[in-house]
Amino acid sequence: MKKQWGRLEAWLRSNNPALLADLNPPASDADIQKLELQLGVELPTDFVGCLKVHDGQRGGAGCLFSDSEFLSSQRILKEWAIWKDLHDGGDFDDAEAESGTGIQPVWWSPKWIPFTYNGAGDHLCLDLDPAGGGRAGQVITLWHDDGSRKKKADSFAQWFAEFVDKTV
């Protein structure tokens, strides 16, 4: 993870120093423990490694991941809590999802952990409760107004490496 971050940071230093400066310092072990406790999950080690380099971004200099902000541990919890409240309130009871192979056929699962946010209610999530044929920790899409759920990568490390390779 550190190698990929090093490549991305070098590219940002030359091409978008404001976005580099917008990245938060590393999450502490206590921050990660608190996040896992409140989410009720154990986060994948590759994602924890990412947060230990940069705990998301402040959100004042544009989007790190194409058209989406990289969420800090605090923002992950905030975005997850919005979805959890809607879920617990029954808002998704009649919603139909079109899930790809290996993804639960539900509108939202409490074990889908958002790590990006596009400003319109859409996320990329870590799927910690995949369906048969899926892998815990796979990266999936989550749209607020569309039930299509697709896998973007088998793991956060794979997704991040592909992002860095396309960017730099």
Rank of each mutant, 00 (worst) to 15 (best):
L142Q: 15
A81V: 04
I76S: 01
F70M: 13
G49L: 02
L86W: 08
P17E: 15
F160N: 04
E36G: 01
G59W: 03
L86V: 04
P44D: 08
L23W: 06
W83C: 11
L64G: 00
Q38N: 11
L37I: 00
N16I: 06
P25D: 11
E162H: 10
H144F: 05
A161K: 09
A27G: 08
R135L: 13
D88K: 10
D85L: 11
R75L: 09
G102K: 08
D94K: 14
F92A: 08
F115W: 10
V139G: 06
N16Y: 02
P114Q: 14
G62Y: 07
G62Q: 00
E42N: 07
D145I: 05
S99Q: 13
G102L: 10
Q104Y: 05
L128P: 05
V48P: 00
L142K: 07
Q158H: 14
R13E: 15
V48I: 09
R7T: 08
G121K: 14
N118M: 09
K2M: 10
Q33S: 03
D122W: 05
E36F: 00
P110Q: 15
Q158K: 14
E162D: 15
A27H: 01
G137V: 04
A27V: 02
G133D: 08
S72I: 01
G59T: 03
D93K: 14
L20C: 07
C125G: 12
A153L: 11
